[in-house]
């Protein structure tokens, strides 16, 4: 043990062993460690006809900074912060859907702002979820976001609300779980946006148009819709 010759023989093997143990430890750590997911992607402007309406839009603090943290025994902990990207996407989306858009600070408008808008739009993230191949047994990562879009009048009364689910999936790469979850989440945001642009917005346009017509007809009355018509404007649009 003390001879220099023996040391020369055993040192490389000890180094090899430690390399193997390090590699194994790194693989195990990869599964156990926290993956911070960054959601990035382009912010396309929808190619749709703008609804001629002056709308306010209220983004709650929860919506602006939405975060999701989940621990899975099979693949570690995921921290997904997509509030910022989601907010940028929605600002771009809503500005392209209506002719006049103003961000407001509260769902219930202050007295000086009441009567300013045709309606106020309140988007909300109800639920977010994702699946990894270790659980779904499929070859890709999936994400879904349930949004609720509520339309309120200047006094904060519900005019209608719609629930939609945006879905996205992305191919996974070895050691690229975080990136794949981020891509799937971005695709879910896009899908949600597409549904808002093509399914929800035409309904909002009809509702605002009907409201304007009934306001004209019932000039002198408060102009609020009947509970029946409000129920018609409430819908869930699943996958």
């Amino acid at each position: 043990m003390g001879s220099a010759h023996k040391l020369k023989v055993y040192k490389p093997k000890t180094r090899n062993l430690s390399l193997i143990f390090t590699a194994v430890a790194l693989i195990l750590l990869q599964a156990a460690c926290t993956k911070t997911v960054t959601v990035t992607g382009t912010l396309p402007t929808p190619l749709v006809e703008r609804v001629p309406a002056n709308v306010g839009v209220y983004y709650s603090d929860e919506f602006k900074s939405f975060e999701h943290k989940e621990t899975m025994p099979e693949s570690g902990t995921y921290e997904i912060d997509f509030g910022s990207q989601n907010l940028k996407f929605f600002r771009n989306l809503v500005n392209a859907l209506f002719t006049d858009v103003t961000e407001v600070n509260a769902r219930e408008l202050p007295v000086e702002q009441q009567g300013t808008f045709d309606a106020v739009l309140v988007p909300k993230i109800v639920k977010y979820g994702f699946l990894v191949p270790a659980i779904s047994t499929l070859t890709f990562y999936e994400a879904s976001i349930e949004y609720q879009i509520t339309l309120v009048d200047n006094e904060g009364n519900d005019l209608g609300n719609w629930k939609i689910v945006g879905y996205g999936k992305a191919e996974g790469e070895l050691f690229g779980a975080g990136k794949a979850v981020g891509e799937a989440t971005m695709l879910a945001i896009r899908d949600g946006g597409a549904r808002i642009a093509t399914e929800v917005t035409p309904r909002i346009a009809t509702l605002l148009s009907n409201k304007e017509m009934s306001n004209r007809e019932l000039s002198g009355s408060d102009g609020s819709e009947s509970p029946e018509s409000e129920a018609e404007n409430t819908g869930e649009m699943d996958r």
Partner: peptide, 12 residues
């Protein structure tokens, strides 16, 4: 797909 969003998304 970006230029023609939302018309060439999987759903649309």
């Amino acid at each position: 797909k970006d230029d023609l969003y939302p018309w060439f998304e999987p759903r649309t």
